[in-house]
């Protein structure tokens, strides 16, 4: 019996039909910018067993990236954790604490050396010998330097791990740095504050499907998600082209959904797929909610894009 059959049986037992599963694979394949010919391969990649071990380290972060990942739909988070990957260490959801949690981390690293996927959220505080952040008695700086090189691949989820993000905003009180700056590793970066979970899940599936990292831009971002400017995909683009701008958030122009460029929108400088996939199962995205894009998937946006309410 193939492993794929095993997964489908598991899914069916939970009321998820073969058709639902293939529909999900189709959506995911489209998000990844692949042709429909890849749908069966995506399905096969997801159904493979044993589940690939994933270790998630939380450094100087706010847990927004973990919360965002919890919002994934198709696959839902229970499918991701129970059926697709083996999430061996994740402080926010794991059952054990303290020594027992440390044991989970050590066990997985030892057993899966060179074979696990490392996911990191949060920047690395390097000031004061790393004492601004510790986990289990180790500084985060020591921890990432120790674990990073043992991973098969490192995925930085969120702008903090990718580029320093919020903790590194001027004056960077803790000398926070990105994972790649500190470890010298080439990381896959899924920036955003937080990133859309579909981009993280899409990257993991890409890895399972091809056994390698997705194609990246010069900032380490997968092209399937970060290949185009927000501005070029924005549904308000025609208003920009027609010179129809919002100049007050409490106005008829705002209610008509005109362009937010003059309110400070950073869509013209920001690579991300928010307008295309939107957030929370396609519910909305900041520009739809009448707010300028703040450019949260770009390096140094907390300094480069501020003040946010000013045209660039």
């Amino acid at each position: 019996m193939s492993q794929g059959k095993g997964l489908l049986e598991r899914l069916e037992r939970k009321g998820i039909s073969r058709r639902d599963f293939m529909k999900y694979c189709t959506t995911l394949t489209a998000t990844m910018g692949l042709s429909s010919a890849y749908v069966p391969k995506v399905a096969a990649a997801l159904a493979n067993a044993p589940r690939p071990p994933v270790i998630w380290l939380a450094l100087a972060e706010c847990t927004g990236c973990a919360e965002s990942t919890l919002r994934t739909m198709y696959p839902w988070i229970d499918q991701l954790v129970l059926d697709i990957i083996s999430l061996d260490y994740h402080e926010t959801i794991m059952a054990p604490s303290g020594e027992a949690a440390e044991k989970s981390l050590r066990d997985s690293i030892t057993k899966n050396a060179g074979k696990f996927i490392l996911v990191v959220d949060g920047a690395v505080p390097t000031g004061d010998n790393g004492n601004f952040g510790t986990v289990g008695g180790k500084t985060m700086l020591e921890l990432i330097k120790e674990v990073g090189p043992k991973a098969m691949a490192t995925i930085c989820i969120g702008t903090c791990a990718s580029y320093g993000g919020l903790p590194a905003a001027a004056p960077n009180p803790t000398q926070a740095k990105s994972v790649s700056e500190v470890t010298g590793l080439k990381t896959v970066n899924i920036p955003g504050c937080p990133p859309n979970p579909i981009n993280f899940v899409g990257t993991v599936v890409n890895f399972l499907l091809f056994g390698k990292l997705p194609e990246l831009d010069d900032k380490g971002r997968p092209l399937f998600a970060y290949g185009q400017l927000i501005h070029d995909q924005c549904p308000r683009r025609s208003h920009f082209d027609s010179g129809e701008f919002v100049t007050s958030f409490n106005s008829d122009e705002a209610r008509k959904g005109w362009c937010l460029y003059q309110m400070g929108c950073k869509g013209p400088d920001t690579y991300n797929n928010c307008p295309k996939v939107k957030w929370n199962d396609g519910t909305s995205w900041p520009v739809q909610a009448g707010h300028p894009c703040i450019g949260c998937s770009e390096p140094n946006f907390w300094d480069k894009s501020t003040p946010f309410f000013k045209s660039s």
Partner: peptide, 20 residues
Amino acid sequence: GGKNPHVQSMYLGGVTCATD
């Protein structure tokens, strides 16, 4: 709020979601 986590629709005296 535009998205969750980290909503993006606050402004002085209220919110920005005029079209919602």
